[in-house]
Write a protein that binds this DNA or RNA. Sequence first.
DNA 1: TTGAAAGCGCTAACAC
DNA 2: GTGTTAGCGCTTTCAA
Lengths: 329, 329
Amino acid sequence: MVTLKDIAVKVGVDVSTVSKVLQGAPIRISDARREEIVRTAQEMDYRPNLMARGLRLKRSNALAMIVPTTTSYLYPEIIDGAEQAAEERGYALFLIKSQNPHTRLLSVVGHGRIDGLVFADDQPSEEVASRLNSLDVSWVCLNRTKPDDHGHVALDDEAGFNAQAEHLLKLGHRSIVFVSVTPSSYISGLCTRMFIDRMKKEGVDLPQTHLFQSEFDGGQAADIADIIAELSPRPTAVAAASVQIASRIVESLRAKGLRIPEDISVVGYHDSPTALWPPPGITTVKMPSRRQGYQGVSRVIDLLNGVHFEGETIDERPVVIERGTCAPL
Amino acid sequence: MVTLKDIAVKVGVDVSTVSKVLQGAPIRISDARREEIVRTAQEMDYRPNLMARGLRLKRSNALAMIVPTTTSYLYPEIIDGAEQAAEERGYALFLIKSQNPHTRLLSVVGHGRIDGLVFADDQPSEEVASRLNSLDVSWVCLNRTKPDDHGHVALDDEAGFNAQAEHLLKLGHRSIVFVSVTPSSYISGLCTRMFIDRMKKEGVDLPQTHLFQSEFDGGQAADIADIIAELSPRPTAVAAASVQIASRIVESLRAKGLRIPEDISVVGYHDSPTALWPPPGITTVKMPSRRQGYQGVSRVIDLLNGVHFEGETIDERPVVIERGTCAPL
DNA sequence: TTGAAAGCGCTAACAC
DNA sequence: GTGTTAGCGCTTTCAA
């Protein structure tokens, strides 16, 4: 392992000089010296000892993002955004599989090993949260279980479900089914309301018989599709709060002999590889998940630098990705 | 932040004494003292500074596992096993999303931040491998692209495809299709051969027309199912090298009006949540992936402790999970 | 322009 | 039984 001292000895200067030069600190030094130091460091493949630096600076320059066990298809995008932000700001980003309770998390994050955390899935319990604070670990959540919690980086689901509703309305649909997700966050519990409200503005009422609930991964979607197929009069469109649900519904309705989108239009929510099945894919509302990951990391780093932060909603516009499961009435 | 010194001052002893007591080192000290030190540490919620310890010991006690971008369904099991091993041996385990090339990996692993790596997906390039070695980072791979590479923790796919073949043979099938995966590792390139060899032992020959290749995630499976359905005489069983492929084939064959398993039996490879679709799920060969993750981490830790390691094949037996897509001829 | 020195929190060899 | 001491590699203040 090559240290600052090795370089210092080789060049014939003091370690502190090498340290300053390598950091690009604004010191006055002859260009020749500076160049020689930099070159020598490269030649020797010098890599700073992060433990020593961390001990001195009380900073590890490492972040971790907690992601769920189930390989839910939203996370690759979030992770990509998060990694980009981390890289841009010179931080290392690790992933930790989320587990409940988060007790093991504390020993992994440890003391000084990780500067900040992004909870991409669930949220820390009161106890874990206060331990994190006492360990001086900054953290933000991407999901919300309560409206007024510790700083969050949330998606604008109101805009998302608005966009979904508008897409169907624009195509002329008025007899619509909405399949929400089992509440797992503050927002998912409200999605039915958001969708209904937007519909009501257009004078479209959704009766109770047109409201369903499924697991995010599409668990009960097949049963729901059975019921939808039997409704009379048959609705002309189905909006689902996840693309997995939409995908399953398309499969099930087709299996019953219904044509999608000719007989019924189907639209999902969020975009992911799942949305490509069945081919040529599900029409869906793409939310700015990548950006959410990016901002999550950015905000944690800001917190570390003393920049206060109350919470944030990503204002990038939702985009309807048309893949052929929606048609005009 | 509370340090050893804080405790030492409070109790009225030296830091080194506190250090030794808290590590449970075999020193002679009065029980009263020892008890007081331990109690005080607890009361003050002492947490060792991992940077300081790491600097001193030249060990971070942290490992990372490289997992692929695509949320392939095998990984949850591998990760679970890996985390268990890490926890048992007192290591923190982080996940890093695999990326090609691995250049960013080096800066994330840094110098001293991570003691060892498990590559769960691909393998490091020559260059990255040599950098890791020069950084004194131990590593193992779970996959193999070459037969005689740096120490691996591999699955016994020979036994796996044997078990798959035997299951179909035992049910009386003799006209069989095999769908392999696009080679991504040393083993996956050989899977067709393993299956065929086992079949040949029983006097069953697979003609070229009965051999297909698909992406691991089932990409081309629908097209392949189309061809299978038209084969004449129609084969009585399909063996696939992934459960995703099997799942897609079952769906496609059923969509064409064939009954599974009455008309054709289908068996997958590996087990995962995907195997539950379509209900009640796909009959498959479960490989010891959990164990593979566990051993991967164990071996890295062994390497760190100077225990040499050439490579290993998990000898836990593959198990056929019967879910109803296979029937006797 | 450059160097000396202190110290981050911890461990371990050695002294008493 | 317990304390002294040195040092891991780095940064930063202060001195020259």
